Computed example of a mutant assay.
Amino acid sequence: MIRHLFTLIWNRKRANFLLMAEILLSFFVLFVVSLLLVNNYHNYRQPKGFAPDNVWEFNVDPGQDTVDRKGTLRRLVQELQATPGVAAVTWTSSNTPYSFSNMNTDQYRYKDQKAPLTEVYDADDEMVRVLGQKVVAGRWFDRRDDAATHTPVVVNQKFAEAMFGQESAVGKVLTDDKRTRQWQVVGVIEAYRSGNDFAANEAALFERHVLQDTAQYGNNTLLVRVQPGSGAVLEQQLVRKIKAVTKGWDANVNTLAENRQDKLRIMLTPLVALGLVGGFLILNVALGLFGVLWYNISQRKAEIGLRRALGATGRGISRQFLGEMLVVTTLGVTGGLLLAVQFPLLGVFGLPPQVYALAMSLATLLIFALTAICALQPSRTAAGIHPAVALREE
């Protein structure tokens, strides 16, 4: 049966070659679209590495006030910590979770190993209580680091694997390019995907900072973990305390949940557009295949009539057309897979191997399902052609 199908396909090689080329191109485009969608879904399923619920972000700006910023900020943190309903307060840099701010560098070195591009965060001893990062090795910052000879840092597993491989990261000392600065790793956290829900788990490093002179950091950011169920009453109370302590500093508040939703809407826009492009492509491929199959039937009525006159059943005719279409699809998809497999081999996009494999499988499944659906009705129509009618028309 398979040999007979290949013979029929070879006899109509020109038309089938164009059909295979269309399927190959459609498969490749679907693979690229699937790759991006699968990668975003894969990232979405990964652990965030922190708990954003019930965390509020306060941005305080001293403006032109240059009088004892450090002391004012210290008093502010103490006042907020003493407020009923507040669980913990941390002072950090502006690149908070779901913000549009970044602080990245590749300056870190360990022996001859260069760090990947790493997002750097300012952190104090309370951040782990506010954001709930999961420490998997070593510890988070504490008072033991006050007397440290090297700047204490905590890294995520992605950074640790890139820099130290299978070695333990805790205790390792990092330097910069000129070996003028040194950082010592005191702990490793599981992950930290703070960009958005679809962000990849990239290298991250937290550098310990106690309340230093904030003039070097611009706007100052406080993250406050509140008790579940806290609402507008506590928010207004905290804003009043900020204004009372800072005496004129500008302050605004957002919840990380609100920031997350804002960032999610922005990230979903290109994904929805990508999905619409993929849907439009599938629709066009379906219409093209359906039209080609109908044309094939109209051109092969004499062949169908002769086969029916020789005793072929309607089911046999239907299976023949469906089988031809699936064989042509297999040849087209095989060519597409040969192109797609180059992506992981060449490291295009730098995605995990399982993402490429899943995207190939999804594109293959879509193409086969599409061709089977498009071939079903024309093959049934071919099976219903009466031999006398077909031969008389010829």
Results as ranks from 00 to 15, higher is better:
Arg3Ile: 09
Arg3Trp: 12
Phe6Leu: 14
Thr7Asp: 15
Leu8Cys: 07
Asn11Asp: 14
Lys13Pro: 01
Ala15Thr: 13
Ala15Gln: 15
Asn16Ile: 04
Phe17Lys: 03
Ser26Asn: 13
Val32Gly: 02
Val33Arg: 03
Leu35Phe: 04
Leu36Ser: 06
Tyr41Ser: 14
His42Asp: 11
His42Asn: 10
Asn43Ile: 08
Tyr44Lys: 11
Tyr44Ala: 12
Gly49Phe: 07
Gly49Tyr: 04
Pro52Met: 02
Asn54Cys: 10
Phe58His: 02
Asn59Trp: 15
Val60Arg: 05
Val67His: 15
Lys70Ala: 11
Leu76Glu: 04
Val77Ile: 12
Glu79Trp: 06
Glu79Thr: 12
Ala82His: 02
Thr83Val: 06
Pro84Gly: 01
Gly85Phe: 02
Thr92Pro: 03
Ser93Trp: 12
Ser93Asp: 12
Thr96Ile: 08
Ser101Met: 13
Asn102Thr: 14
Met103Trp: 15
Asn104Asp: 13
Gln107Tyr: 11
Lys114Ile: 11
Glu119Asp: 11
Val120Tyr: 10
Tyr121Phe: 15
Asp122Phe: 08
Ala123Trp: 07
Arg129Thr: 10
Val135Glu: 02
Ala137Cys: 06
Gly138Ala: 02
Asp145Ala: 10
Asp145Gly: 07
Ala148Lys: 01
His150Ile: 07
His150Met: 02
Pro152Ala: 03
Ala160Pro: 00
Phe164Gln: 00
Gln166Trp: 07
Gln166Pro: 10
Ser168His: 06
Ala169Arg: 05
Lys172Ile: 06
Asp176Lys: 10
Lys178Asp: 13
Thr180Ala: 13
Ala191Gly: 07
Tyr192Ala: 04
Ser194Tyr: 14
Asp197His: 04
Phe198Arg: 05
Leu205Glu: 14
Phe206Trp: 12
Phe206Pro: 05
Gln212Met: 12
Asp213Leu: 06
Gln216Ser: 15
Gln216Ile: 12
Asn220Glu: 15
Val224Ile: 00
Pro228Gly: 00
Gly229Trp: 03
Leu234Cys: 01
Glu235Lys: 11
Arg240Glu: 12
Ala244Thr: 09
Val245Trp: 05
Lys247Arg: 13
Gly248Gln: 00
Asp250Val: 09
Asn259Met: 08
Arg260Trp: 02
Gln261Glu: 15
Asp262Cys: 08
Ala273Glu: 03
Leu276Asp: 06
Leu276Gly: 02
Gly279His: 00
Trp294Asp: 08
Asn296Gln: 12
Asn296Phe: 12
Lys301Glu: 13
Ala302Met: 10
Glu303Ser: 05
Arg307Tyr: 01
Leu310His: 11
Gln320Ile: 14
Glu324Met: 00
Met325Phe: 09
Leu331Lys: 06
Gly336Gln: 05
Leu337Ser: 00
Leu337Arg: 01
Leu339Ser: 10
Gln342Thr: 12
Pro344Gly: 02
Pro344Ala: 05
Leu345Lys: 11
Leu346Tyr: 05
Leu351Arg: 09
Leu351Ile: 05
Pro352Asp: 10
Leu358Lys: 13
Ala363Asn: 03
Ala369Phe: 11
Ala375Lys: 03
Pro378Val: 07
Ser379Phe: 02
Ile385Gln: 06
Ile385Ala: 02
